[in-house]
Design a protein around this nucleic acid. Sequence first.
DNA 1: ACTCATCATAACCTCAGCGTATAATCCAAT
DNA 2: ATTGGATTATACGCTGAGGTTATGATGAGT
Lengths: 309, 309
Amino acid sequence: MSSRLPAFSGLTAFYAAVRNGTLTGAARSLNVSQPAISRRIAQLEADLGCALFDRSHKPVQLTDSGRELATALRSGFDLIETATDRIRRAAKGRVVTVSGPSGFVAFWLIPRLGQLQEACPGTIIRIISMEHGEPGRIGDVTVRFGAQDPSAQQEIKILGEEVFPAASPLYLSRIQTPLTPDEFSNKALLTMEGSRRYWYDWPSWFDAIGRPMPPAAQFIDFNAYAMVINAALAGQGICLCWSGLLDTFLDSGALVRLTHLSAASDRGYFMSLRDGGAARPEAIAVLNWIAQSGATPAPTAAGRLGEQH
Amino acid sequence: MSSRLPAFSGLTAFYAAVRNGTLTGAARSLNVSQPAISRRIAQLEADLGCALFDRSHKPVQLTDSGRELATALRSGFDLIETATDRIRRAAKGRVVTVSGPSGFVAFWLIPRLGQLQEACPGTIIRIISMEHGEPGRIGDVTVRFGAQDPSAQQEIKILGEEVFPAASPLYLSRIQTPLTPDEFSNKALLTMEGSRRYWYDWPSWFDAIGRPMPPAAQFIDFNAYAMVINAALAGQGICLCWSGLLDTFLDSGALVRLTHLSAASDRGYFMSLRDGGAARPEAIAVLNWIAQSGATPAPTAAGRLGEQH
DNA sequence: ACTCATCATAACCTCAGCGTATAATCCAAT
DNA sequence: ATTGGATTATACGCTGAGGTTATGATGAGT
């Protein structure tokens, strides 16, 4: 590009003044101070060698040269803005956003991200971790944990809730093994702080397996499930594991299941498309891949979304 | 303008890369370093959400998005550049550049600039001060000092060379007045340093009036006539005055002519149009105004340029 | 395998361009 | 004619955006 084009800071300041009617209005619209606009336009006028505004009036009025430049800038900027908008939308169309509870994201989704990317070339996966209770639906594909909601739009259950205790070999090496639930007294039990009974915690787990809560258990609280698991992996105590969520750690032996006993409910991880039937094909492809990779073998009666017969 | 337009620093860097074929070539053409171009384009790509160049090749190749953006930028920048070029040329057409010896500029032309502007509304007068010996012709209207050049294109003599000594009242109050040339001994004579005998200096002035150079005169040298006159105005000595040039100071009494004796030659200030008969009307108008304002009443035989019967 | 050109990134530096303060000026209302 | 408010221009001080250099990674040609 020739150096004959003026500095764009001046052109954009000038054009903002044209559209806003005053230099003060241009400053507001560009989020700078009014003197900044004044100087930029003065520099542009020095470069061009003539006034673009008639300053014998307040607010300023365009000169003939200013009018000519404004027309060219409108056309030129519109061309560029239209092209960049199309490019941004095309790029955004290749982005599929998946949101879910932080535990699910950290321990189920992210470990499988490489496989997901390979399964969906050309799609950029964007992940948003959400805590329980955050409002609304964010992202093209949304995963939530909870009970089935019969009035909700179509959801796929990808993991049910089956919970059992586990600990790391490091922890177990410091205490006798195997450790049965009856022997949890005086043991460190890792738990989610501020639990709202939307999932099993230690008391409700023991209740579900029909055993009393062990006396003198020591609770260590965290405010995110990822921190609970990180503490368990570090050998700091016994955690509750959701079946299917921590398979990578259980399979690798980084965590060891402590008993065949488990508590189960009809809750689970449910996945849905924010836009339902109007979802983009890229989003449907991501949802289908997650569904077929989920530990729960049987999807809900709606089956795979997007498939037609 | 919407904030949706990307930063122009990125757009211009990208477009320069497209036109130059490589980022390195873009850096050269924009006079910045190659890393600066690299970062600017990276920021643009982050804003747009996609790659504009395919970097698995050297040099880089445009992606589909890059090609689309390049097309839009070519059109948009061309519109803007064409408009700004027209505006610059129109503005430049209103500019008439007058060049002349620094003494003439400082003491004759600039004091009359207000009147000239009033006589030529819509014309921007641009003045270039030149020292003797500088090459060529600069400016639409050129004033030179020297002898008439019969082979030169049409010139108007605006001031002849008639030279006499003068001093300020401040200086004269410190010495006896009136001061005749015979009494210049031991007086401070202000002179142009490095005089090349193209105009009167003190020795040649005394020779011209048929009197001996006064012994024991004290010369104070300056390298510009304007400095000589400023020193005289400040009461530091006696200067040589060119008639017609310093009328404003003589008329106001800031300088006082010391003798009716003067030296004269056929040299003088000659004015011409760089473009001769092809000069723009604005330039012709400026030349005519200067000619009619000059102290020399009779122009050369060619008369006023640009006048038709 | 080697060499060269091209490109990306880290670390450091500085001045272009910002904001604030304030004065000048136009315009509408009184 | 006066006044108050809005708009614009300019001086001064400050800082972080964007430059540079150094250097490593990588593609392409030989």
